[in-house]
Design a protein around this nucleic acid. Structure first.
Lengths: 353, 353
DNA sequence: TCAAATAATTCAACCAATAAACAAATCAGG
DNA sequence: CCTGATTTGTTTATTGGTTGAATTATTTGA
């Protein structure tokens, strides 16, 4: 550890001591084999210290999960149900009860929940107000702390999913996570850090223009990516009702399904080319429903991107499926609570004397 | 200064002393008025310390400029002439002579040139090789130090122009500088820092797709922005030869010129909408030939961007003309030399005992 | 002219990190 | 089974940069 940080062994010892007494690190038995010489003391991130509570409200479910510092998912609660049928306050009350259950489970394990982060599919302002979440029907919804007093912050679903992929996937320092749900959002990670934009509204890839005079979009413009590669457009073109049915139809070789996916891939490829030309990221992670559809989308995206990315000849765009599946945003939310602890461990140590 | 940094007055005093003895700061006479009490000692950045040498090779000229720490342009040398007619080595030798003249002028003023940065209109790899500069006809050109031994680095013209605008213009922390020359490049400034991308090839806005089946572009794809808003396309559509002639024709109300500019504005507006949706920057700076054409482009850009930017209703996109004019890249290059000194003043102090 | 206000300097004390010496625990080999 | 080599962890005095409080300097306003 001293070699990696450039600090002296003595300094590292002193700092590690603080973290061990503060229960952020634990000495592991037995000591790991290090060859000749006195064996090093094994250290693991404490699995019974602070935990992150990740929450999510999406179109057809709400969920909560508890993740510990070691990154293992300790609890996961999901309540299916269309969240558009109730008004925001009722939804938030239900979420509060779910969060309280998850927190109780965590504390029964000896964990201390350090905070909560909520993922929503919409634009979130810096002050924690959900400006607009079109697919939830939310507008200017203020989200406060949880009923039991736990601090809660809100963030965009794609942003949090990108953070989740960053922390748990094997990804380079720069990548863009594209979340294909009913809307299409993106989380942009540059230099290992999430780029939120000056007001936190970055990544609205769903409204990149694909054809200037294409079909009207609910945003008011025409020909947005969402009208070509959004879930509703693709399912309609394929003549099926769900993403699962689409995957089955494509596996079965149904022409309508394959044509719909090819068209979506071409549109996505244009958007990917735009992103890569602009940001010079070499990795694009496809999440949400795109993760399971990638086998049929890949060729179309790669062809279009290969043609349009200026630097494709030197280094082609890497397309990857997201590894965290549908829980990515929820897990990323929990992870971002823990990241807060890791970014300022002294604050955590001060909280427990 | 102590209040601004959070350090003690004693600490600030000690640090400032170092900078004054190292000739990076100078005490100014007379002391500024600060109200009641002992007046503060005025401090100015030393105008006779290190200087930056900014160099540029562009399609029809090469230039050099010397900028001091206070930001004033001390010397400016420009040699017009088509740089495409000679091979790269000959061009670089001519640039070396120009740089030597500029350096001699600077040293006659008592300045010490701390380094040189060269702006080129092309893709520059991290190791300082110009991968490709299509409008110069350069490919894989290695640019070493200057003949007199001064360290020189190379960077993209739009990137450096963006840095120049950042340092000298009144701009927010996040903005995108769009450079409209024969190609269209962009310099992306996020959080006050230039975002270069993982390989230094960010900002290739000229190849954002506008119409998937538009005219063929020299990049191999079809319908790139450059085919709609690039200098050659716009001049051809307007039926004139130079940007100056285009501006005169537009002032005179010639229908061809106005139509060409309206079309270019609409295409630029689509690209701007893409950039803003993706990065959530609220300010777009238009440079190069766009700076002088902005009066006729503005309406088209604003209309298209207003329609397509998701957050336009809350905060419209701000369009600004670049303030540095055609020298932006050269000045930004000089500025980035000085930025290197400011980022690590201790290294500079160590160089002069 | 004097008190209040603001700036700058001095100096002892502190803190985190360093370097070097030392102690501890293992492996390899005779 | 003992010894030397090797690596890890701790102890100690030292250092460099910052702090805090006291002191000095220089102006404004009554």
């Amino acid at each position: 550890m001293a070699a990696a940080t450039g600090l002296t062994r003595a300094t590292v010892s002193a700092l590690v001591d603080d973290l061990v007494t503060g229960a952020l690190l634990t000495e592991r038995e037995p000591a790991p084999r290090t060859g000749a010489g006195r064996p090093a003391v094994g250290l693991v991130v404490a699995p019974d210290g602070p935990a992150g509570l990740g929450l999510e409200i999406n179109v057809d479910y709400r969920g909560a999960c508890v993740v510990d510092l070691a990154g293992t998912i300790r609890h996961r609660l999901v309540e299916p149900g269309d969240q558009r049928l109730q008004d925001p306050q009722t939804v938030l009350e239900g979420l509060g009860r779910l969060a309280a259950r998850a927190r109780a489970l965590a504390e029964a394990d000896g964990l201390t929940v350090a905070g909560a982060v909520l993922a929503v599919p919409g634009l979130v302002a810096a002050d924690g107000v959900v400006r607009i979440a079109p697919n939830l029907g939310w507008q200017d919804v203020t989200v406060g702390d949880l009923p039991d007093g736990l601090a809660m912050t809100v963030d965009n679903e794609a942003n949090l999913a990108a953070l989740g992929e960053r922390d748990l996937g094997e990804l380079p320092h720069d990548f863009v996570y594209v979340s294909g749900e009913i809307g299409i959002g993106a989380g942009i990670v540059l230099g290992g850090a999430l780029y939120r934009g000056s007001r936190g509204w970055s990544g609205e890839i769903g409204h990149i223009p694909i054809h200037s005079d294409g079909p009207a979009c609910r945003c008011g413009a025409r020909g947005c990516l969402e009208q070509y590669a959004g879930q509703e457009a693709v399912l309609r073109a394929a003549g099926v009702d769900t993403v699962g049915a689409l995957a089955r139809a494509a596996t079965a070789g149904k022409p309508d399904a394959l044509a719909a996916l090819t068209a979506a891939g071409a549109a996505l490829g244009m958007a990917v080319a735009t992103v890569v030309n602009l940001l010079d990221v070499r990795t694009i992670v496809l999440g949400g429903s795109y993760a399971s559809l990638l086998p049929w989308l890949r060729e179309g995206i790669a062809a279009e991107a290969g043609r349009r990315v200026l630097t494709a000849a030197w280094s082609p765009v890497q397309l990857r499926a997201a590894t965290l599946g549908p829980d990515a945003a929820m897990l990323g939310a929990a992870g971002s609570v823990l990241r807060g602890v890791l970014d300022d461990p002294a604050a955590w140590l001060a909280r427990r004397p």
